[in-house]
């Protein structure tokens, strides 16, 4: 398998405080990579840097060999060029961020129609298909405020999928959900993983990491502490900080 996404020596600072320091990692095609770590460890920032919702201070990100976000000299690309690159990177937000004035199907169809240039009919057909895929076939005409959190998040996943992205980034997709709604979202994500979607997932759902991830990365204080298969990392962590983190989780 080839490396689809490559991150090299990524640095990010906010107002003098280092959030990411020298982070390098790669994601292979069809791989599900899960990022875990305590709050403030830089997981979310790392994810947001990949599609340039945050601008890293330095470092190189490439998707399929193409450098993302910056020119070869490291200059941030103009917003319209970033937009073109983001079409190929799906992003699922913690708080869903659905377009409040659009129905579920319009939320999913607007990207293919306005960004990819599909006709309204094609875009709606594709949106309907993606909504079926996340088991929302009967809720297509509802607005976000008529849907539960779990349903909203599944619409958000369908919205990302409708762009036919090469990789899907999940930023704590179940953290804002009521406990009883978490499972329906995780099941959809697991199905995507099994189908071979390339995914990078930031989550606090350790059961999901154990069962679904091909590889797990533990981050702390803006750096990667260790990585490995879920088995290795959860059963036999090498670093003291990883052990501490896992012990705290078990309570």
């Amino acid at each position: 398998m080839t490396n689809l996404l490559q991150i090299e020596n990524l640095h990010k600072q906010y107002a003098g405080r280092t959030v990411l320091s020298d982070v390098s990692l790669s994601v292979k095609t069809n791989e599900t990579l899960v990022l875990i770590g305590p709050s403030g460890s830089g997981k979310t920032t790392l994810l947001r840097c990949v599609n340039y919702l945050e601008t890293p201070n330095s470092g190189i990100i490439t998707l399929d060999g193409e450098r993302l976000g910056a020119s070869s000299t490291g200059q941030r690309l103009p917003e319209n060029m970033l937009a073109a690159q983001r079409q190929r990177i799906g992003f699922v937000f913690q708080r869903f961020n659905l377009f409040a004035h659009l129905s579920a199907i319009e939320n999913v169809a607007i990207g293919p129609q306005k960004v990819l240039g599909l006709t309204r009919q094609e875009a709606h057909a594709r949106a309907a298909h993606e909504l079926e895929r996340v088991h929302l076939g009967t809720h297509m005409d509802k607005r976000p405020n008529q849907l539960s959190g779990g349903q909203q998040q599944r619409v958000a996943i369908a919205r990302a999928l409708a762009m036919r992205p090469k990789i899907l980034l999940f930023d704590e997709p179940t953290s804002a959900l009521d406990p009883e709604l978490v499972q329906e979202v995780l099941e959809v994500m697991q199905a995507l993983s099994v189908e071979g979607m390339t995914m990078m997932v930031v989550t606090h759902e350790m059961q999901f990491a154990r069962d679904v991830a091909h590889r797990v990365i533990f981050m702390d204080a803006g750096a990667i502490v260790e990585q490995g298969s879920p088995k290795d990392l959860f059963i036999n962590p090498q670093h003291e900080r990883t052990k501490q983190f896992l012990i705290h989780l078990k309570g």
Binding site: N51, E79, R86, F91, L98, V115
Partner: peptide
């Protein structure tokens, strides 16, 4: 309009002018 919707629109590749016209202004 909450910033999250702008970020979501950016994440599916909408240009700033499209975000304004299709997402923010109607709301």
């Amino acid at each position: 309009i909450e910033k999250g919707q702008t970020e979501a629109a950016r994440s599916i590749g909408m240009r700033p002018s499209q975000i304004l016209v299709y997402i923010l202004f109607p709301q």
